[in-house]
């Protein structure tokens, strides 16, 4: 899971910061800052909620290829 955030679309509602504070922050202009664009899977539910709550649809998720080093 990789997070794509579009600062040009962001309206600074802060929903992502409130939902997943370990993953999102707001910059000096109040716009989205992604702290960790490929967060640990444990964060996935809150990241998905943040994406759904974003009022300007500035957040999206891309599926990342499995890490071959983790393959069995």
């Amino acid at each position: 899971m990789r997070i794509i955030a579009d600062k040009h679309t962001c309206i600074g509602s802060g929903q992502c910061v409130l939902t997943a504070p370990d993953v999102f922050d707001s910059d000096d202009d109040g716009l989205v800052d992604v702290l960790d664009s490929e967060p640990d899977p444990a964060h996935e539910p809150s990241v998905r909620e943040a994406v759904a709550l974003c009022p300007s649809r500035a957040l999206s998720l891309a599926v990342t290829a499995p890490d071959p080093r983790r393959a069995h």
Partner: peptide, 13 residues
Amino acid sequence: YRRMLISEFSVKR
């Protein structure tokens, strides 16, 4: 206009 005000109402502020 909105972008001139976003930082004034950010979660941090």
